[in-house]
Design a protein around this nucleic acid. Structure first.
Lengths: 194, 194
DNA sequence: CTTGTATAGGACATTTTGTTGCACAGCGAT
DNA sequence: ATCGCTGTGCAACAAAATGTCCTATACAAG
């Protein structure tokens, strides 16, 4: 149990991180400094130093805030194609329409030298992978896919391509693309065409 | 035509960028400054300011240096499985054993706010995609794959997964994985099992 | 040799970053 | 309501980083 905290402390922290996250997505990690967050929020610089003596900690907390789970449970009542389209659709809109899109690459870059950032990415990814995993599990218990289908690789593929397109290649993730992507995954899973 | 340049200028530039690239892969973009490069090379700070008045330019040039093409032409004499294993093997070892592995995520992060970095990534990617494209082209003209196979998506998948594993998920790219990955691509391409 | 150019080195100004002390206000407890 | 505790704002300050400028020197090209 953590002891109850002063509401002032919580409010300051929250306001600071909100601003930090905004700066993060608009101007990049480099722009997130005690000074810039102070100016954006009106919180004094010395207070921010008290909360986060090292700027990396503040940045990491902003990362975590951006990576906080969406709490949307995946549908698992089949068929596989429908479920996949649904869950990948959520992933796609997270990348297209939420702060996570612009922030993710920065967390990834930070992860190279910062263990905490690595953890943020890993946690986020395991959660997404678990989502898709559940869908395949359900499909298997319905007998929709064969037991020998390499589910692990399929999950990875399902998620890797949208991430690659958006973050690395800078390509759009639209509805047409999503459908053809799901088609390929289904084909590999041995599920009949639409 | 660019006019011939003073050899001193070229030498300085090259030495600076070499050091910048090293710092980039070991300590991250933030550590690449006029001061740090000056200290690493012995080149005076004022000279570095003359070459790159803005630090972003220096960083971008270091990015470009790290992304410079490997000049290894892909084998295209088939069969598809062999060619794919070869070309993806090159990609994998570039990610595993060259500076590009640690540097790529940083270029990607920079690309969010910097057009020039975006171009570095795009150029690099189109080159890799062209490699794989040539292989599929050859396979098609050999009659190894059907005309209606969605080659574009396959290429993307072939490349996306290793990038995702290495850069985003932080997973290893080993020989076993590579083989199973090639298997899946071949299956989608409608090529018989080994 | 001569002229033009690149670099090293240092002085300096400016900006950013980090630290500290103090007054004040909000919080929780009595 | 009052009191002690703690978080915040503010200002002054120190330290470090960044950016600019000038001069002497070394190298390059004709």
């Amino acid at each position: 149990m953590s002891k109850p905290q002063d509401p002032r402390l919580i409010a300051t922290r929250e306001a600071a991180l909100e601003a930090a996250q905004l700066i993060l997505q608009e101007e990049g990690v480099l722009a997130v400094t005690h000074a810039s967050v102070s100016e954006a929020t009106g919180i004094s610089r010395s207070t921010l130093y008290r909360h986060w003596p090292q700027i990396d900690r503040m940045r990491n907390d902003a990362f975590k805030r951006a990576a906080s789970p969406s709490n949307i449970p995946p549908a698992t009542d089949g068929p596989l194609r429908t479920d996949l389209t649904w869950v990948l659709g959520i992933l796609v809109s997270a990348l297209n329409d939420t702060p996570w899109g612009p922030i993710a690459p920065q967390v990834i870059a930070a992860a190279a030298t910062d263990q905490e950032a690595r953890t943020v990415i890993n946690d986020f990814m395991s959660e997404r992978i678990a989502y898709v995993d559940r869908i395949f599990d359900a499909a298997r218990s319905r007998g929709e896919i064969a037991p020998d289908v390499p589910v692990r690789n399929l999950i990875e593929m399902a998620i890797a391509v949208p991430y690659f397109r958006k973050l690395i290649a800078g390509l759009p993730l639209d509805q047409d693309w999503l459908e053809s992507h799901v088609d390929m995954i289904c084909q590999l899973a041995g599920v009949a065409d639409k």
